[in-house]
Design a protein around this nucleic acid. Structure first.
Length: 419
RNA sequence: GUGGAUGUGGCGAAGUGGUUAACGCACCGGAUUGUGGUUCCGGCAUUCGGGGGUUCGAAACCCCUCAUCCACCCCA
């Protein structure tokens, strides 16, 4: 126990952290180009925020939150997702008073109490974006495009955008009524889960994976059939914009997001081939959320994508993330006087921003060259007693094995020039 | 929360009742004394997730427990 990490968490070790940094750099690059600015919110919030923001009837709130009392007996919760916090920050810091739209992104860990499996963890990382203050369907298209652009830069293939519109405050009740009317005659034949959803959220019944339920709900009125004029027009325009920039999508009328706050546009990006958890990105518009948590009526839209799932997809698609070279120069010193000299050289070379390493285990030359080889160093500088006596060092090119003697006073220049 | 699989050295993996727990990779050392990536030689588990039991005897059989993985639900 003592030396075992909590269930569903991960250690990112050297080598992996480098890959994560690469992904994060790509995120920052894309966001910067699209005009999104980073926001960092706390990793825990008052529990009510998620209850209200994410929705009381969602799985997240019903059974997946890491909730505990702090020493002041306040209920706090490790954030299960990013949108609620960002909305809270938007309201609390009165970002609505500044120029609109406000385009934000975040990267960081999220927490959900679930049984881990492939692509699912209790602590996992998401990159997400949110746009506040515009109902323009072009924004919906931009958000989706940004996600696809990001994946494309990483080299991912076979991604599918699933797109739907779930309507707004006006058309949702209409749809709900029609849906219940359609489903009611066969209600007793649905799975218990669906029966429970019938009153609270019949929309979710369309999303059930149970084949029996799917059959029973086949032909049910879809959200898109019941859209009000405004929502229908919005949906058409989103599709139009996507087509203009060549983002392929598939309308999926059964796509219903698991979170309660969505309105109009809902989408998921899928990669099959990474196992049961094939959704790598999910998002949509949430025009009522800011108001719901106590802010001024403000439209919003965003997505969240799972970083661990990026790695799963990269792995199955055989995509390697380029790694940095570990060392330019390896100083192999033999004997205490040489070690002293090497230590000084190391510091001087580092001032020139060369990647330099030396041996700290008093190993033999053979072992030191082996270390240089492992680090893929370009040069090994051999500093032994002989060389030291001559005020020189042997510089060995690791790839060719060529070596030459260089005076110590010329060594820094030599390595700087030939790096 | 439910179901299934698995747990042997740093990693992969053989072994399914009988004296010293294969092998591969990695790691460390050596092959005439200061030269890497190839080769050769050597080293590296008083012990088989943990606890209890059966037995003359268990890593192997039984019970309990812990952990990991996968799936369901749902999602990132």
């Amino acid at each position: 126990m003592l030396t075992q990490r909590p269930k569903g968490t991960n250690d990112l070790l050297p080598g992996q952290t480098e890959k994560w940094r690469y992904i994060e750099n790509t995120i920052r690059q894309v966001c910067s180009e699209y005009g999104y600015q980073e926001i960092r919110t706390p990793i825990f919030e008052h529990t009510e925020l998620f209850q209200r923001g994410v929705g009381e009837t969602t799985d997240i709130v019903e059974k997946e939150m890491y909730t505990f009392l702090d020493k002041g007996y306040r209920s706090v919760t490790l954030r299960p997702e990013g949108t609620a916090s960002v909305c809270r920050a938007y309201v609390e810091n009165k970002l609505y008073a500044g120029p609109q739209p406000v385009k934000l992104y975040y990267v960081g860990p999220m927490f959900r109490y679930e049984r881990p499996q492939a692509g699912r963890f209790r602590q996992f990382n998401q990159f997400g974006i949110e746009v506040f203050g515009s109902t323009n369907p072009a924004v919906d298209a931009e958000v989706i495009t940004l996600a696809m652009d990001f994946y494309e830069r990483l080299g991912l293939k076979n991604l599918e955008v699933h797109l739907n519109s779930v309507g707004c405050r006006r058309c949702r009740p209409v749809h709900k009524a029609k849906l219940q009317e359609f489903l009611r005659p066969n209600l007793d034949k649905f799975c218990p889960n669906c029966q429970g959803r019938f009153e609270r959220n019949p929309l979710r019944m369309l999303d059930c994976k149970n084949p029996g339920c799917r059959e029973l709900s086949a032909g049910a009125p879809t959200t898109t059939q019941c859209l009000c004029e405004e929502c229908a027009e919005h949906f058409e325009q989103v599709k139009g914009y996507l087509e203009k920039v060549g983002v392929r999508y598939r309308v999926d009328e059964r796509l219903v997001r698991g979170l309660d706050y969505y309105t109009k546009t809902a989408f998921e990006i899928m990669v099959e081939e990474i196992g049961a958890q094939s959704a790598i990105c999910g998002g949509g518009r949430y025009d009522g959320l800011i108001e719901e948590i106590g802010g001024p009526a403000t439209p919003g839209i965003g997505f969240a994508l799972g970083m661990e799932r990026i790695f799963s997809a990269l792995a199955v698609q055989g995509i390697e993330i380029p790694l940095e070279t570990k060392a330019d120069v390896y100083l192999a010193a033999l004997g205490e006087p040489a070690v002293q000299e090497a230590f000084k050289l190391q510091a001087q070379l580092r001032k020139l921003h060369l990647k330099v390493e030396m041996d700290y285990l008093a190993r033999g030359l053979k072992a030191q060259l082996k270390a240089a080889d492992r680090l893929k160093a370009k040069y090994a500088v051999i500093l032994g007693e002989d060389e030291l006596a001559r005020g020189a060092a042997t510089v060995r090119r690791m790839d060719s094995g060529d070596q030459q003697e260089v005076k110590l006073i010329d060594l820094i220049d030599f390595l700087a020039v030939n790096k």
